[in-house]
Amino acid sequence: MITGKILYKRPKTLKDVNMSYCPGCSHSLMNKILCEIIDEFDIQKKTVVIAPVGCAVLLYDYIDCDSVEAAHGRAPAIATGIKRVNPDNIVISYQGDGDLLSIGMAETIHTANRGENITVVFMNNAVYGMTGGQMAPTTLVGQITKTTPSGRNPENEGYPIRACELINTLEAPYFIARCKVTNSKSIMQTKKILKKAIGYQINKKGYSFIEILSNCPTNWGMKPKDSNKWIQEVMSKYYPVKIFRDKGEA
């Protein structure tokens, strides 16, 4: 018989199944962190996660909460409908960069602008992952993708969009932060920030936008370790990791 204190275990809300994410991808880590937070707040039965089109489309296969699967880009609109009917439920819109900043830009901005009391988790990996690595709105200048074979050229493709900065121009949002999950320290910091955001939602404070600089080892053509290094050394130079707004601390 094994005795002693359990220091670490699978969160109750995270299903014991194989994930379809690639090895080393930030999605699996963020799914787990989200589940840890849901467990810590004991809100599994009242949380609704919106599954986006993209790599996280099967989110409900991993996170054991009520879920609605959205059309591409429409997750915040669905989240709005759910939250307006059930203001006491916790609604999390989990989205990637193409979903949130390209096809769903209008829904993103207007949901933030209405100050819907939801939490948006924005997985920014600078590429369309699911479809095989095309240019995303957040693809960096010079970055090679399937549709920018010579690297993103601003003269043809424009510049990468900074989501937090954009949302920070709006009055209504309550909490806006950019995080990364590249090492133990930043993972713990990200969890703390996301937990704060969901806490704000529980206390009906309003809209939170949490961007996570994420890796995509498969489509970046890098080993997971190198991809995390790229986030540290390249990606976070263009997308500064910081808290942009925290009305709870103001």
């Binding site: 059309a71 609109a77 709005t80 409908g81 009917v85 207007h110």
Partner: peptide
């Protein structure tokens, strides 16, 4: 009552409400 930002949004808002 919510005035949506587009018809794309309004149909998806009723998708969310309908899911409830």
């Amino acid at each position: 009552f919510v005035q949506a930002e587009s018809e794309l949004a309004s149909i998806n808002m009723i998708f969310g409400a309908g899911a409830c």
